[in-house]
Simulated scan of single mutants.
Amino acid sequence: MTVATNEMIRPGQGRGLLDVYEHRFLLKLLVRKEIKVRYRGSVLGLLWSYVKPLMQFLIYFVALGIFLNLQRGTPNYAIYLFAGIVLVNFFTESLGNATRSIVDNRDLIRKIYLPRELFPVATVWVSAAHFLPQLIVLVGACLISGWTPSLMQLGASLLAFFLVSILATGLGLLFSAANVYFRDSENIVDMILMVVTWASPVLYVWTMVRDAMGPWYWVYQLNPMTVAVEIFHWTFWQPTLKSDQLVPGGTPPDLIILWLPISFGISIVVLFLGQLAFRRSAVHFAQEL
């Protein structure tokens, strides 16, 4: 049997994320495998998706909401806090696991060839599976508080989720490739994850940053996570407020018209750079591992 020369592909040179789509059946298998392995021997299993963010929420609410009395100036502070936590947790889990995905699957990568991008992308999908039950809890709490969102707000929250997914995938590709050659990459990512909660208006309202930074506030808005969290607050927290409670920390100006497109542009650039770095270094993964 002969193979046409134009059908032959140099080993390790694929089409990047396009190959992930063509091998989506492998992606599903990897996602199932990751979930099964993660909760193997666990008593609570998927319930850990509820326990961890709940503990994180309680710690922040007690320390900041009660001890520092931030809830006094922020109506429905519990919903405000949890709306930011669930989105940031999705990003931190996605990026942290994506960074380790290539090294953790070294045995499989050394044995057979398959699109390497499958591994970091699969971790983002697994994190999305953990994000869903947290989102259900958030929606339930919002409904109890009289949540009345508009279709535009619901659509914006969906765009915010895609925004974070794109950003996490791009950074995950970049750092997972770097981690093969420089294991210090995990420490760098750990530091990023340590500050991301404070670098976005999760625990505080955006007006505090505006008042502190003044004309330089736009620099803060260049962080796509900031915009995504603000959209989640606009969608889930603000519709639970009464008309006389819409003062501090309302919606930042031009959030949807200006900052959301800019954030998508930044995230797409990060995805392109991450894919470029990953594709160039993926050829030597098996030898380095």
Rank of each mutant, 00 (worst) to 15 (best):
V3S: 04
P11D: 01
L17G: 09
D19M: 06
Y21P: 00
R24L: 03
L26D: 04
K28V: 14
I35E: 08
L44F: 13
Y50H: 11
L58P: 06
Y60T: 05
L64E: 01
G65W: 04
F67W: 15
Q71M: 13
G73W: 03
Y77K: 00
A78R: 08
F82C: 04
G84W: 05
F91E: 02
T92P: 01
T92V: 14
R110Y: 01
K111P: 00
L114G: 03
L118M: 11
A129L: 11
A129Y: 09
F131T: 11
A141Q: 08
I144N: 06
I144E: 09
S145T: 02
G146V: 11
G146S: 10
G155Y: 07
A156K: 01
L158P: 06
F162N: 08
V164C: 03
A168G: 05
L173M: 13
V180T: 14
R183T: 13
D184A: 07
N187Q: 12
M191V: 15
I192T: 03
V195D: 01
A199C: 08
A199Y: 00
T207F: 02
M208D: 13
M208G: 08
M208Q: 14
V209N: 09
M213N: 03
G214V: 06
P215W: 15
W216C: 05
I231P: 02
H233D: 04
P239C: 04
K242I: 05
Q245L: 07
P248D: 10
L260Y: 05
I262G: 07
S263V: 11
G265A: 10
L273T: 11
Q275P: 00
Q275A: 15
A277P: 00
F278H: 14
A286W: 10
E288F: 09
